[in-house]
Design a binder for these strands. Structure first.
Lengths: 182, 182
DNA sequence: TCGTCCTGTGACGTTTTGTCGCAGGTGAAC
DNA sequence: GTTCACCTGCGACAAAACGTCACAGGACGA
C-alpha cells in the first residue's frame, strides 16, 4: 500500500474530544478516507446507521458511558463495520472484552496515523498488505504519554509522577528533554 | 461460587515448564478440578482429543512454537473447551490475537489461583468493566509498543530495532524484561 | 557451498535513573 | 498575618541501563 493510495473507505471517528476528532478525521481524509465524527453515543449510532461506515474508530472514555457498551449497538447499526478501539486507558482486560464484544482491533493512545491505519487494515482480506509507515520511536511515545497524563493533572508534576508511578525528579528531567524530531 | 465447591470440571494445563504444570495442576486438583498436563504442542493435542477437557490453560511460550498457533488446533480437538491464555510476556497485541483466534480469557503471569479460576469461569465479556482510571506506566506503554511493532515485523528483532531506531542489543534486553504487573 | 541476515550474548565506557534532600513559592484555612 | 501542606527547581551520588562493539553460530535463498 502506498501512502497516497486512495481507499475511499469510510471511517466513523467516535471520541468525546472534538479537537481529537477533527485532527484524526482530517489526517484520515488526507489518506483518502471518507470520514465522519461523533462525540457521543447517540450521535455515533445515528451516523453508524445513516452512513454504514466500513471502519469505526472508537474511544472507550465517552462522557458518561463506556465505549465497550457501544460496540454491540454499533455493530447492530452497521453489521459490516470493523471497529478499532483506541483508548488512552488501555489495558489487557478491556482489550480482551472489546474483542469478545466484536471489536476487530485495539490500540493504546498515543498512536500515530500510520499505526491507526495499520490497525484499521489488519484483518483485511489481503494479508499480504504490509504495515506502512515508520512506527513511533519509544522516546516520542513516552513524551506524548507524559504530556497527556500531565494535561489530565492540570500541569501538576507531582501528581503526574504519582499517577505514572515515576520519581518526580525523573519526570522533571524527561519533561525538560523533548524527543528528537522525527 | 465458593472456594471449596468441587466442580469436577477437567482442565488441561499446557506449559513447557514441567514444574509450573505440577504446581498449577496440584492447586487446581485441590479445588476440585480434574487435571491433565502437557509440556509441548503434540502432547497437548493428544490430550485435548483423548480427554476433551472443559478448560485449557495455555502458555504462549512453548518450545519452538507460539502458543497462539495452538489455539485453533486445540479447539478443533476439543470444540467445547474454553481456553485461558496465561503468559509471562502479556501484551495487548497478543491478547487481541488470542481472543480472535478463540481464546476466552487471557491473563498475565504471575496470576494467583483465584484469578486463574475466576478467569476460567468467566464467560461473556463484561461491558461494565470501567476502562482503568490509572494511566499506563511508561514501562508498560513501551512494552506494548515494542510488542506491537515486533508483531508487525513478524517477530524479526533486527527489523524491529531498525524500525524503532533502537540498538538491537537494547531491544533484546527490553524484550527479555517484561514490565511489572499492574 | 556461499553470502546475507538474524540471533544470542558478553564486555565496557557513557548516560540515565532512583533516591535523597535543600530551598523557596503558593494557596487555603484559621 | 500565620501556619500547613503541597508543589517545584535543582544538585549530588550510587546503581542501573544504554550505546556500542564484536564474536559465534544458525537459517535461508541463490
Amino acid at each position: 500500500m502506498t501512502d497516497t493510495e486512495p481507499s475511499n473507505a469510510s471511517v466513523l471517528v467516535v471520541d468525546d474530544d472534538p479537537a481529537f476528532n477533527r485532527v484524526l478525521a482530517r489526517a484520515l481524509s488526507q489518506r483518502g478516507f471518507e470520514t465522519h465524527c461523533a462525540t457521543d453515543a447517540e450521535q455515533a449510532l445515528v451516523l453508524a446507521r445513516a452512513r454504514m461506515p466500513e471502519f469505526i474508530v472508537l474511544d472507550l472514555n465517552l462522557a458518561g458511558v463506556s465505549g465497550l457498551r457501544l460496540i454491540r449497538p454499533l455493530l447492530e447499526a452497521s453489521p459490516d463495520a470493523r471497529i478499532l478501539v483506541l483508548t488512552g486507558y488501555a489495558s489487557i482486560a478491556t482489550a480482551v472484552d472489546a474483542v469478545k464484544l466484536g471489536a476487530t482491533q485495539y490500540l493504546a493512545k498515543p498512536a500515530d496515523l500510520d499505526a491507526i491505519i495499520n490497525a484499521l487494515r489488519a484483518g483485511e482480506a489481503n494479508p499480504d498488505i504490509k504495515p506502512g509507515g515508520a512506527p513511533m520511536s519509544v522516546d516520542r511515545l513516552e513524551w506524548e504519554h507524559l504530556q497527556r497524563v500531565l494535561a489530565e493533572h492540570d500541569g501538576n508534576i507531582s501528581a503526574t509522577a504519582r499517577a505514572l508511578r515515576m520519581h518526580r525528579r525523573t519526570l522533571q528531567r524527561k519533561l525538560a528533554r523533548p524527543p528528537a524530531a522525527e
